[in-house]
Design a protein around this nucleic acid. Sequence first.
DNA 1: AAACTAAAGCTTTTT
DNA 2: GCTTTAGTTT
Length: 701
Amino acid sequence: MSRHDMLKDLNPQQREAVLHSEGPLLVLAGAGSGKTRVITHRFAYLSTVKKVPPTSILTMTFTNKAADEMKERIEGLLGRSIKGLWIGTFHSLCCRILRREIERFGFKRDFCIYDEHDTYDLIRSILKAFNMHEALYKGISSRLSTLKASLIGPEDLLKNEDSYDFDEKFARVYVRYQEELRRNNALDFDDLIMYTVRLFEEYPKVLRKYQDEFPYIMIDEFQDTNISQYRLSKLLASRDKNICVVGDDDQSIYRFRGANVKNILAFKNDFSKAKVIRLEQNYRSTKHILDAAGGVISCNSMRMPKRLWTDRTDGEKVLYCITNTERDEAGYIARTIKELYLKGRYSYKDFAVLYRVNQQARVIEDAMRDSGIPYKVIGSLSFYQRKEIKDIISYLKVIVNPDDSVNLRRIINSPPRGIGAATLGRIENEARKKDKGLFEMMKIIISSNGYSASLKEKIRDFVELIEDLNSQKDGELSRLLELIYERTGYLEWVGEERAENLTELLHSVEGKDIKGFIDTASLYTPIDESQDGDAVSLMTLHCAKGLEFPVVFIAGAEDGLVPYFHAIKRQEELEEERRLLYVGITRAKDRLFITRAKRRKFYTSVKELKPSRFLDEIPTGCYQCYEKRHGRGSIAIETKVHLEPVASTPFVAGVRVRHPKWGIGVVRESYGDDDDMKVMVNFPSVGVKRLSLRFAHLERI
DNA sequence: AAACTAAAGCTTTTT
DNA sequence: GCTTTAGTTT
């Protein structure tokens, strides 16, 4: 591909960003301004024009999906696929580095990665051992994560022993937690980054090696980086300073997870000669939608000033619909989707319904089902989080790494093999006393006295099972899974429904090797499990980031949902909620609907909620408000404010018509614009037909 | 050890 | 309202 080809589809700012190949570069890329395009074209430019080997460009993203998309597009630009590219998530790339280097920290190279659930289990076992409230595990886990993301290790915590808010018990848990991870030869998500940073800080030679390996660095969604990720980027870029970061402070919605928008400002300070380029042309949304978004986000005080613009037309106005209850709201959404769908311009996959909390999905799902609209709920419970899948992955983890006591614990009695909580507790105590791992301890028990024969028998069976499976681990992975199912009787134990998922798992691992699969399973949450099929997407506002849809609904525009109850006290939290709405609005390409219910059920009680305070921030010119009112009696009727002017046609539902060929029928439904009116007619002779009034010569009778 | 029952929770969550 | 957890029974 020539230099010309590479640049021809870019606007001046995008082009400038692509051409700025040396030195630090900050690209402030507004929603829908083509940031992925900049990264991919810049990659292609570096490799073909500047002759940088593609494997020397480190490109870090936050999601696997973003990484996959980038890989695909870059390979498309380069016209070939390349092995060994360093394009991936922070976590997967750090994992790749640590697989080579971790031995310096006393881990083995085949360490395993603990996902959220594994860490929960570990923390709970520690709390139990310390006689602390086990129910606190979630809070403890998030505190641990925050500390690690800020590069504060247990030893740093202990240094502050004298400070007034020093929490001795918590510090002990942290120390023990890290010890246990090491004992289990396991790293959690935050460790992947933290140890990589430590590696580079404590071993300058290693850092230099990787600086040689990656003279060019690019980072996507920079506003989402936390302290450790920023430090990592800074270390790698500190020598050559060829670092390009792309982000949008207005789309920072993960502060609660440690993301630090200030990194954008820090970047400008840390790399003093950083070039700053703003991408403000939006290629996604109509003017009205963009105006609505701009009105909202401009109310934030803590942001870098910018203004998105588009050369698209005004488009339809944003519609704001008020309903009485959440069920009415869901019904309205379903009906509107159906109506737009029947007009034929959109397929179901063009629609998204966005909401603040997953709980809202249920009533919307009901409405979709009732209307016969195909839908998929995204991000609720991912495949890999299901119990049965996690169990089998635990088997695999233990087979590869018998030191992994947490996963061993998980499977030791699933399916039940007579080693229950009491027995397990005994083994664990012994193991702790002898400073051994669980598996080792079990092997000791088999050949020692003082345990009942039946217990030894059970334990021997289990140890032999794992060792047998371990000897088979280098064969075909799907064969190994079959073997696990067979030898443990797992399928029969979990029942038919869950067994189906396991069969699916079996098919999905065809041709993969065990270690690669375990890493993928730990680091991969398939956001789009069933991408196929034409279906409306239901998801939280958070999940929607990075996506776009022709038609978007934002449900629950109420104070209490957007902004959420807990997030109205502090300014920073409120502004994050505002950004969340901004992200939602900017997902829409052509049509945007915002809905709210006056009364909404929360758990058991019904609450009356006021409209979201953010709605007042939408300029009046770009939206239209209407309300569904109750008519006389108990029947709810809709005041006739239609999406588009109601078609003036005599052929409305219920009318009898005559068709020259099919005879007499009854109109089921009529829809479409005035000039392109369509009707669905049920003819007793041939069934339901869709007809265009322009062509079919219908006669009203 | 497993199954049952009562009670207490309860945003968002790229990895 | 429904899922997760703790405590109790069988």
